[in-house]
């Protein structure tokens, strides 16, 4: 398949046409190396969109462009347009710090701050100059991440004293607390046991009522369980020997797993890959 042709855009056929993030012909470079090529991908509001594909296909790289976290990597550069509610995120006038306050992120490895559980959740609100009732916000956020009942009696204890799954839900609570519109999740369950994973997945179903979620996952069952829309990325080797990633197919999750239009998608989701 020629990666530069526009893959089937499913957004035309969606019932919910409220698009939060538009990705138009986006290519991502590290110096001279092109990591991701010509991606078109529209994220509808209050949906869970899963990005799946083999390692090195650029799905995490793309995810980190949505809140400009790639800015922290020297030499990273984005071409094309990523629009959040119609505003180009890479416009020079945009403040990346403000972008990250609207588009929160949960990382692969749970990374609570070495502070108390309470302070972990309150951190984002504090730096945002939150003036309301902090106790209430912390409780609401911890309830939102289904952690409240487990930690309500030890809010003063270190966030690092929690189990891995609890730490990840603490990080989700921390993200909810800044009340973003979009939550990016970079393989949030890859370090968790199956029970904790199920908890976080259940949580996503709850969260999407309020937020829009983009999740990168290696776990195809997870994508099929949580995602409304799924984008399959693939990697291709260039003549120079380096690899670049591109979007193969983006559609409703049911279609991706049951009636994919591309042979590569069919091969990947059925496990006949590489």
């Amino acid at each position: 398949m020629n990666p530069s042709t526009r893959p089937n855009s499913a957004s035309d056929t969606l019932e919910n046409n409220d698009i939060v993030i538009r990705t138009e012909n986006v290519s991502i470079f590290y110096g001279a190396f092109q990591a991701v090529r010509n991606v078109f991908l529209d994220v509808p509001k209050n949906n869970v969109v899963a990005l799946i594909g083999p390692s090195g296909c650029g799905k995490s790289t793309l995810l980190r462009c949505y809140n400009r976290l790639n800015d922290l990597i020297p030499g990273a550069r984005v071409e094309g347009k990523i629009a959040y509610q119609g505003v180009d995120l890479y416009d020079p006038k945009i403040d990346p710090v403000e972008v990250r306050r609207r588009i929160g992120m949960v990382f692969q490895k749970a990374n609570p701050f070495p502070k108390s559980i309470y302070e972990n959740v309150a951190f984002g609100a504090r730096i945002n100059g939150f003036k309301g009732n902090m106790d209430e916000l912390v409780e609401r956020s911890l309830r939102g991440s289904a952690l409240w009942d487990e930690v309500k009696d030890k809010l003063k204890e270190s966030g690092l004293s929690l189990s891995g799954g609890q730490q990840q839900r603490l990080c989700i609570a921390r993200t909810i607390a800044i009340e973003p519109e979009v939550i990016l999740m970079d393989e949030p369950c890859s370090a968790l046991d199956p029970i904790s994973t199920l908890r976080v997945e259940d949580l996503m179903h709850e969260l999407k009522k309020q937020f829009t979620i983009i999740i990168v996952t290696h776990n195809m069952q997870q994508a099929s369980r949580v995602a409304d829309m799924t984008a399959f990325f693939n990697a291709e080797a260039t003549e120079g020997g380096s690899r670049f990633g591109y979007l193969v197919e983006y559609d409703k999750t049911y279609n991706i797993f049951n009636a994919p239009k591309q042979q590569a998608t069919q091969d990947y989701v059925s496990g006949r890959f590489g």
């Binding site: 976290l69 710090v97 972008v99 990250r100 992120m105 990374n111 984002g124 993200t175």
Partner: peptide, 23 residues
């Protein structure tokens, strides 16, 4: 990851240094 977590919540570099890294 600490640094990224802080930036990911919309902290500036100064806030990341003074509120997360130095503590």
């Amino acid at each position: 990851q600490l640094r990224q977590g802080s930036y990911g919540l919309g902290a500036t570099r100064w806030e990341t240094i003074t509120r997360v890294l130095v503590p």
